[in-house]
Simulated scan of single mutants.
Amino acid sequence: MPDFTIDPPVVLSFSHLDPCGASGIQADIETLSSLGVHCAPICTSLSAQDTLSIHHSTPMAATLIIEQARAILEDMPVKAFKLGWLGNSNNIEAIHTILTDYPHIPVVFDPCLKLGEPEDDHFIQAIQALLLPQCDIVILNTVEAHLLAPEADNLRACASEIHSYDCEHSLITGCQNTANKIASHLYDVHGLLKQYQQQRIKKPFCGAGSTLSASITAYLSHDFSLLEAVQQAHKYTWESLNHGRRIGMGQLLPNRLYWAESRH
Rank of each mutant, 00 (worst) to 15 (best):
A69S: 13
L83H: 08
P106D: 07
P77L: 14
P118L: 06
G87N: 11
H56P: 00
N90E: 15
E67Q: 15
D75E: 13
R70S: 12
E74F: 05
E93K: 14
L131F: 04
T58E: 15
F109P: 00
N90I: 01
P111N: 15
I127H: 01
V78D: 05
I127S: 01
E67W: 11
A94I: 02
K82F: 04
M60A: 13
F123G: 04
I66A: 13
H122P: 00
H56S: 15
H56G: 11
A62W: 00
I98M: 02
P106M: 02
P59H: 12
V107M: 09
L86I: 11
T58D: 15
T97M: 02
K82N: 09
D120S: 08
A126T: 02
D110R: 04
A62H: 05
I105G: 05
K82A: 08
H96S: 14
Q125V: 01
E117H: 05
P118W: 06
F123D: 04
M76E: 09
S57C: 09
V107W: 10
P118Q: 13
A69D: 07
L132F: 01
I95P: 00
L113M: 09
D121F: 00
H104L: 12
P118C: 09
T63L: 06
P111I: 07
A94Q: 03
Q68R: 09
E93R: 13
I92A: 05
Q128S: 06
A69L: 08
A129R: 11
E74P: 00
D101V: 10
K79T: 12
K114I: 12
E67T: 15
A126G: 03
F123L: 07
D101L: 12
I124Y: 01
A71G: 04
L99W: 06
P59L: 08
P77G: 14
N91A: 09
S57G: 02
T100P: 02
I124Q: 02
E67R: 15
T63M: 05
C112H: 08
I92S: 06
I95N: 06
I127D: 00
E67S: 15
L113Q: 05
L83E: 09
K82Y: 08
I66R: 12
S57Y: 04
P111R: 11
L132C: 01
V108A: 08
E74S: 15
E117A: 04
F81R: 10
P118M: 09
K79E: 12
L113W: 01
E117Y: 03
T100M: 14
Q128N: 11
L83I: 08
L83Y: 07
L86V: 10
I95G: 03
L86F: 06
